[in-house]
Simulated scan of single mutants.
Amino acid sequence: MHELLLQAQDQRVVEVFGADPALPAADLESRKAAADQLVRLRLAQFEDDARTRLRLTNPGRYWALNGGYMALLKDDPERAAGGNGRGRNPEMEQLRYQFMTLRMRTFWWSFGISIASFVMSLASLSIALRYGGALLRP
């Protein structure tokens, strides 16, 4: 998988099965499994409908430049193993949930204040247009 990732970094689009048709079947199967794993991790995507050409995504380019698949394993082993985050610390998950709740509450408060300010500016504009001349006279 590491070699396929680095090969895709060197070329814009890489053939999953390579240019050599004389490769053994086990090697072809391992290259196909590696390509499927890269797509599953969202490091690459298939370029064609036959799923034989592979192109790196932005995260794939990042990991290819910063050490390849081995660096991904070292930095985020759970993601590389195909996990979806279920093995996280429950206390951290609770803190994340509380933080997200506070962020959403802050968003809605700022949204409401923005709408109220807009309504007040429209009211101010209508008053200025309607009574503007009378207020400027001595």
Score class of each variant (00 low, 15 high):
Ser124Met: 10
Phe118Cys: 09
Glu78Ser: 11
Ala50Leu: 04
Leu23Asp: 05
Met1Lys: 04
Gln94Asp: 14
Phe118His: 05
Thr57Ala: 01
Phe118Leu: 13
Asp76Trp: 06
Gly60Tyr: 06
Arg103Met: 11
Ala81Trp: 04
Asp10Glu: 15
Gln94Thr: 13
Gly82Leu: 05
Ile115Met: 06
Leu4Val: 05
Phe99Trp: 10
Gly67Arg: 05
Asp49Phe: 02
Leu28Thr: 06
Ile113Lys: 04
Phe17Ala: 02
Trp108Gly: 00
Arg86Ser: 12
Met100Ala: 14
Pro90Ile: 12
Gly132Leu: 03
Gln45Trp: 04
Gly87Cys: 04
Leu102Asn: 11
Lys74Ala: 15
Ala25Ser: 07
Leu125Arg: 09
Gly60Trp: 03
Met104Asp: 15
Pro59Tyr: 03
Gln11Ile: 02
Leu41Tyr: 09
Val39Ile: 07
Ala34Val: 02
Ala64Val: 02
Trp63Val: 09
Glu3His: 11
Pro90Lys: 13
Leu102His: 10
Asn66Gly: 00
Gly112Phe: 14
Ile127Asp: 10
Gly132Asn: 06
Leu125Ala: 14
Trp109Ala: 06
Ala128Asn: 09
Ser121Phe: 12
Asn89His: 13
Met120Arg: 05
Pro59Val: 04
Ala33Met: 08
Phe111Met: 03
Ala22Glu: 10
Phe111Gln: 01
Trp63His: 01
Val13Gly: 00
Leu6Ser: 09
Ala123Ile: 13
Leu5Cys: 06
Gly18Trp: 03
Asn84Pro: 00
Glu3Pro: 00
Lys32Met: 07
Gly133Pro: 00
Pro138Ala: 12
Arg42Met: 04
Glu29Tyr: 01
Ala25Thr: 09
Gly60Pro: 06
Asn84Phe: 14
Gln37Thr: 14
Gly18Tyr: 04
Ser126Glu: 10
Asp20Lys: 05
Ala71Tyr: 05
Asp75Tyr: 10
Pro77Lys: 09
Met92Lys: 13
Glu15Asp: 13
Leu54Met: 02
Ala50Ser: 11
Gly18Met: 01
Val119Met: 10
Leu43Gln: 07
Gly82Asn: 08
Ser117Gly: 13
Met70Glu: 14
Arg55Trp: 01
Arg42His: 13
Ala33Thr: 13
Pro77Ala: 12
Gln98Lys: 12
Arg79Trp: 14
Lys74Cys: 01
Ala19Gln: 11
Met1Val: 12
Ala19Ser: 14
Glu93Trp: 00
Gly85Phe: 10
Ala8Met: 02
Thr106Met: 08
Gln11Pro: 00
Leu54Asn: 04
Asn66Glu: 12
Arg12Ala: 11
Met1Ser: 12
Arg51Ile: 00
Met120His: 05
Asn66Asp: 08
Arg12His: 08
Ala26His: 03
Pro59His: 04
Ile115Val: 15
Ser126Trp: 12
Ala80Asp: 07
Arg137Asp: 08
Asp10Cys: 03
Ser110Trp: 07
Trp109Thr: 11
Trp108His: 14
Arg130Ile: 08
Thr57Asp: 03
Ser30His: 08
Leu23Cys: 03
Glu91Ala: 13
Arg12Asn: 11
Val16Arg: 02
Leu4Met: 15
